[in-house]
Design a binder for these strands. Structure first.
Length: 573
RNA sequence: UGGGGCGUCGCCAAGUGGUAAGGCAUCUGGUUUUGGUCCAGACAUUCCGAGGUUCGAAUCCUUGCGCCCCAGCCA
């Protein structure tokens, strides 16, 4: 289904610059990265950027430094038992693999709970950590704010013995949630809020999906992450911009443990800008709200930018990787245009998707001078002249066909070169027809077109001296296969959702992001399309047989993306 | 005068003192039995602003301005 990842073009960015410097200066002789999701939800296109970066780095440098141990880990950051679940781990692994990557080792932060605990005792013994018994509210009050220093906890000067005793009893389950926490003893007046005696451990009498009931104290991210990285020998720990302030603490944890712990590496944290895309949402909270509020059908709804959603929509792993490579890695907050994502899938599918004929909104055409019972089996190539692939099928042609409603106009502008009263048009792979008569219902709607075909020209023929500019697609009425087709469009009707903290963005969800068409007419060969098979419906766009709902004899297709349509664009003006 | 970051074409993004890459989007032509693809061409005298250093500045200095992040016992 998806081909393995080969070394990308020649990416260059500040992270690769740093790695190259480190290698040159011999600070490292290999590079070890990690992708560390919390298993509390589904992956989205933003995660794909991080996945491509971390796994991509390992692939690239493994080429340059064979047998060095260069690799990328998948690590579940499972330090908050209340939110995490094995179900999410399975989904995440499937998504990473689908994107075309394989991890060199699967780890959990929870693998290191015992070590982390021992390091906690070590920090206490060194006078670098203490058990604090302030309430949540009191702690907050002591923290100060960005402009005013905090004040020391009254428990800050507890003795090593008392701290050790309390910490052991915390682990032993003697206290209720929230009664005590373990804190680093740093500086309550530090300008960096993250350094004001940050919490290292909290009590949580909650079962953990990996460790069960073994623990009732759990480490915080800022404590667990640097330790996990260091234990695994990570050399370059890459995360997003919002963790810039956490880096100082990351370094503090490692620096205060490294002598005692003998870590295999001294990892450093680097931050890059997370992906933002217009016309959609990429925050876990908002995605969750869409799913739970039933605004979409689930985490794999093709309108969503989740990996599962993009997969079901019909995006290929290759196209997503190409997209990630095209947006680059930098530290500037930026919002990428959805058109760039759409380009990536068009560009990929142009070479991969066979061309077939399908009429989305049918209009019947009767060819008056065509014999009633004649069926011509016309040869139709699957690939256009510019795609170097072989293969064709026969498409049946007969007296009654369907064309696209948009391909007929009663009163067309001069530059419209499709069908109109008295005008001639070419039927793809078939004959030239001329519109002779228009049949309307009582309300004046066009219900049928009556044409004649040029008996002098053969199908596929391009007679000299005849200028027939338009070519339209069609499907034989007698042989057509009925189908359901789901037309997808952008999730939001505005570029950016409102900035409000609440659910305001729901007001801007595009009501026509999904449009379900039934009674669509497919060419005969599509009757038994296999789920996940992709095609280009000529002149319409790229489509995929839905992985869940498409069945033999009852095809269901999703529109992945439209073709570029410069005529439609010029009409808009 | 809290701290940490970031500001290069409509959107991304190279560039690290030697005279503004590339992609997306857009616009012109050409090819075309997809108004697709492809091909050819156009698209930043200028890098948030203002000063300064220099033979030379997007790159160095000074100073303004704008945007993002930090006050969860979340990650």
């Amino acid at each position: 289904m998806n081909s393995p990842v080969t070394a990308p073009a020649k990416p260059s960015d500040f992270i690769r610059d740093i790695i190259n410097d480190d290698l040159e200066a011999k600070r490292h002789d290999r590079v070890i990265t990690r992708f560390p999701p919390e298993p509390n939800g589904f992956l989205h296109i933003g995660h794909a950027k991080s996945i491509c970066l971390n796994f991509g780095l390992a692939l690239e440098y493994r080429d340059k430094l064979p047998a060095s141990g260069t690799r990328c880990h998948l690590r579940f950051d499972d330090t908050d038992p209340a939110k995490e679940d094995t179900l999410f781990e399975d989904g995440i692994q499937a998504d990473v693999r689908w994107l075309g990557f394989e991890w060199d080792g699967l780890y959990h932060a929870s693998d290191y709970f015992e070590k982390m605990y021992q390091y906690g005792e070590q920090l206490i013994s060194a006078g670098k950590a203490y058990v604090c018994s302030l309430s949540d509210a009191e702690t907050k009050a002591h923290r100060g704010d960005v402009k005013t220093p905090g004040t020391n906890s009254p428990y800050r000067e507890r003795s090593v013995e008392e701290n050790l005793d309390l910490f052991r009893r915390m682990r032993g389950g003697e206290f209720k949630d929230g009664e005590h926490v373990l804190r680093a003893k740093i500086d309550m007046a530090n300008a960096n809020m993250k350094m004001r005696d940050p919490m290292l451990y909290r009590i949580r009498h909650t079962a953990h999906h990996m460790t069960g009931d073994s623990w009732c104290i759990y480490p915080m991210y800022d404590y667990a992450h640097p330790i996990s990285d260091a234990i695994e020998g990570i050399t370059h720990s890459i995360c997003t911009l919002e963790f810039e302030n956490n880096r100082e603490l990351y370094d503090w944890v490692i620096d205060n443990l490294i002598e005692h712990a003998k870590f295999p590496s001294r990892p450093h944290q680097y931050e890059f800008a997370r992906l933002s895309l217009n016309y959609t949402v990429l925050s876990k909270r908002r995605l969750q709200e869409l799913v739970e509020g039933k605004h979409v059908s689930g985490w794999d709804d093709p309108r969503l930018p989740t990996i599962a959603g993009l997969r079901r929509r019909g995006y290929t792993p290759e196209s997503i990787r190409a997209f990630c490579a095209s947006v680059g890695i930098s530290k500037a907050n930026s919002t990428v245009d959805m058109a760039q994502l759409e380009f990536s899938i068009r560009d990929d599918l142009n070479q991969k998707a066979p061309r077939v004929l399908a009429v989305l909104k049918p209009l019947k055409v009767v060819i008056e001078n065509y014999p009633d019972d004649l069926v011509e089996e016309l040869d139709a190539a699957y690939w256009p002249h510019d795609v170097p692939k072989e293969g064709s099928r026969k498409v049946p042609f007969c007296k009654e066909i369907f064309i696209e409603q948009d391909d007929f106009m009663l009163d067309p502008p001069k530059d419209y070169f499709r069908l109109a009263p008295g005008k001639e048009v070419r039927l793809r792979y078939a004959h030239l027809i001329t519109c002779k008569e228009v049949v309307k219902d009582q309300d004046g709607n066009v219900t049928e077109i009556r044409c004649t075909y040029d008996t002098e020209t053969k199908p596929g023929d391009n007679p000299v001296g005849r200028k027939v500019k338009g070519t339209i697609h069609w499907v034989s009425a007698r042989h057509a296969v009925d189908a359901e087709i789901r037309l997808y469009d952008r999730l939001l009707s505005e570029e950016a959702p409102p900035t409000g903290k609440d659910s305001e963005f729901l007001n801007v969800v595009n009501p026509s992001a999904l449009q379900v068409l039934t009674g669509c007419k497919l060419e005969r060969s599509l009757a038994d399309a296999k789920p996940t098979e992709r095609f280009q419906f000529e002149r319409q766009g790229y489509f995929i047989a839905d992985e869940k709902d498409c069945h033999p004899g009852a095809p269901v297709f999703n529109r992945i993306v439209t073709l570029k349509d410069s005529w439609a664009r010029s009409q808009k003006k």
